[in-house]
Amino acid sequence: MKTKFFKLLLPAFAILMAVGLAFATEDEPVAQVAHYFLPGQGWQTVTVEDDCGASGNEACEYNGIQLYSERDFGSIALRKP
């Protein structure tokens, strides 16, 4: 009986719990993009953390290159707290 519990009920419980948690904690799809200029290749697009915005102490960078909100140097240079 005990063996049966471990063999069947325990994995079933774990799977059910994980599936339930996955649906319960479904996060809002975040689709924030940022752009950086690569000499010779032009503007590139990457996804960035939610923290990256118009203000903050630290620059949001990709491979050491400043990220912008639009494909334009005149747009917001993204920063994070």
Partner: peptide, 11 residues
């Protein structure tokens, strides 16, 4: 590359 890249993991 950067620490501004978001995680592509689940949940």
């Amino acid at each position: 590359y950067s620490d501004s890249i978001p995680c592509s993991c689940g949940g």
